[in-house]
Design a protein around this nucleic acid. Structure first.
Lengths: 342, 342
DNA sequence: TTGTACGCGTTATCAT
DNA sequence: ATGATAACGCGTACAA
């Protein structure tokens, strides 16, 4: 039937009106006499007329696209962010275009161009820092597309960021262990260059200091957020003389490695060691024992970020500008239990 | 410096040429006298002129966008597909827009409209079937954007599909176990409605038939591709009287659940049970024992799909049209060993 | 080798 | 309530 090539002009001719009236019927129906309005609508129906987006974009000077710039799609949190981002974007009539840089300078360059060409109305930065080219652009130009960062705290303070308080989160995790009666609480760190890892370490230390437990020499192990790092830590703990009764891991992946390896080494968990992670990955709930963790509402963060961005685009005056803080939550599961002397 | 609002007309004026010459310098430099060409280029530099994509799109009748339609972003294979898709798309100057339906009819409708509006030049379908609206559209209309399906075999035979031979893959997995001396080989099935699950079951049966091992009553367990299903199967096997010496799992997730639960039940692996999975997830390599599996080159499949799609768009004549078959591969790891009588 | 001028399909302003 | 018409910014056929 339709050829997909009907233009507003065709509709106008067939309905015996001007193209202006057609456009009005479509966008401001109340300005059109009901009679003519329905005449137009019928023709639209019959012809299967569909507006040409490119022309609309040209006219309106916007694209209806939001660029999601991400440097690592393998990050388990990514798809969770994405779920929330997508949900709100689609609901509000925007579409997501994906910019995957993989940390490559060439790709960062490409997407910098993308933004400069205004091929997206706005920009969300997920993991990885703002590419140099983009930073330049935002510094030099006015009238740049709004940009919001999720999770990754960057030094660029002018950026609106959706964040959680990782210090407080880590503190809560450790306080939970202390409340269970533990006093020898080890920590497996994340990579030193990562700001989240540093904050979690800080929260761990703060919690100990508050209860005056830092006087005991606590075991602090190196790690890099990988499962393998958790395994390594397990071996060290297994050979250690002053064994901790609990461990706070800087993320769930390492906690999973820890559990798996200790299990292999014949430990009884959680009796011999209480474990708390951070992130609350989906897979953590099905571990043996199920992992106690700090839940970060990734999906909700995606929603918040997209909503704020679109509010900006839709020209709404912001109630409260600045960073958006997201609540975390302690999820208690089987891996953390009361201290039991051996 | 630049205001981001320089148009081709500004450049033309400043360079003392016509807009046609500016356009030519940008797209067909060889048609312009070197002297004027460089004059234009300098002005472009100075003004920071950037072409307006919307106008280009309108003129060229294309968008430079490829829609990835996916119903489940949590599928571990998704990000692997995505990596390959993104790589080739960006390399060839296209950008990916993400259509996440989550199986919701409303969203499918939305993206159907998206395609009809020709907001993307082409379409790649990842998991989930072709939405009804789109199927209608492709049936009725001519001049529809090209579409390619990855992995999910749909009944719509006119679709170009990037696939693997799951029957042969499963067969190879089971033959591997047979070659190791196993004769009692159990199978954990995927969900019955899933075509991939059915093919893997079929491959399993074929391999047994070939060696005349189907005469023995083999243990075939229900499953649904989840870790939990693997755990359940472990409990059944643990209680079973005629225990198999090997298991072929319809996917890695179930194999992981199986291993984890058997380990908890005190089994020694792989001595007491050889296990082979399917998919070769990243996490399978770090299991204890590391999981033998059929490797599906998801990333490569993404590349192939995108390349074929863009070939279509760029109007290249296809060497060989039709489905694209992808090679699988048996990855031997510690979880499968020679049969040992107890 | 370069310039003129039309068309891509809309939306919105101004008349009527 | 409706219709002309001017942008929106670009690419290219055609003329020079």
């Amino acid at each position: 039937m339709s050829f997909g090539e009907t233009t507003i002009e065709d509709v106008a001719r067939l309905a015996g009106v001007s193209i202006a009236t057609v456009s009005r019927t479509l966008h401001h129906p109340n300005l059109v006499k009901p009679e003519t309005r329905s005449r137009v609508q019928i023709v639209v129906q019959k012809t299967g007329y569909i507006q040409n987006i490119a022309a609309q974009n040209l006219r309106r000077q916007k694209t209806g696209m939001i660029l999601i710039l991400v440097s690592n799609v393998r990050d388990p949190a990514f798809v969770e962010f994405l779920t929330g981002l997508e949900e709100r974007a689609t609901d509000r009539g925007y579409t997501i275009v994906l910019g995957y840089t993989g940390g490559s300078a060439e790709r960062e360059e490409f997407f910098t161009g993308f933004v400069r060409q205004k091929r997206a109305d706005g920009l969300i930065l997920i993991n990885g820092n703002l590419p140099a080219g983009l930073a330049d652009y935002y510094r030099q130009d006015v009238d740049t597309p709004p940009i919001i960062t999720i999770r990754e705290k960057t030094p660029e303070e002018w950026l609106t960021q959706v964040i959680t308080d990782d210090i407080a989160g880590a503190e809560m995790a450790v306080e939970h262990l202390i409340a269970l009666g533990h006093s020898k609480i080890a920590h497996i760190k994340g990579p030193g260059h990562n700001i989240l890892a540093r904050e979690r370490l800080r929260g761990y230390l703060q919690a100990l200091v508050k209860k005056d437990l830092l006087t005991e020499r606590q075991l602090i192990l190196e790690g890099d957020f990988t499962v393998e790092a958790g395994r390594k830590a397990a071996k060290i703990i297994d050979r250690s003389e002053r064994k901790p009764s609990a461990v706070f891991c800087a993320n769930d992946a390492m906690a999973q490695g820890l559990i798996s390896e200790l299990d292999r080494l014949g430990w009884r968990l959680p009796e011999q060691l209480s474990i708390v992670g951070f992130d609350n990955l989906e897979t953590s709930a099905v571990m043996q024992p199920a992992l106690t963790s700090i839940h970060i509402p990734h999906c909700e963060m995606g929603r918040l970020a997209m909503d704020r961005l679109l509010d900006l685009l839709d020209g709404e005056v912001l109630a409260e500008p600045g960073h958006i803080h997201c609540p975390f939550q302690l999820i208690k599961r089987a891996s953390s239990v009361h201290f039991q002397a051996n």
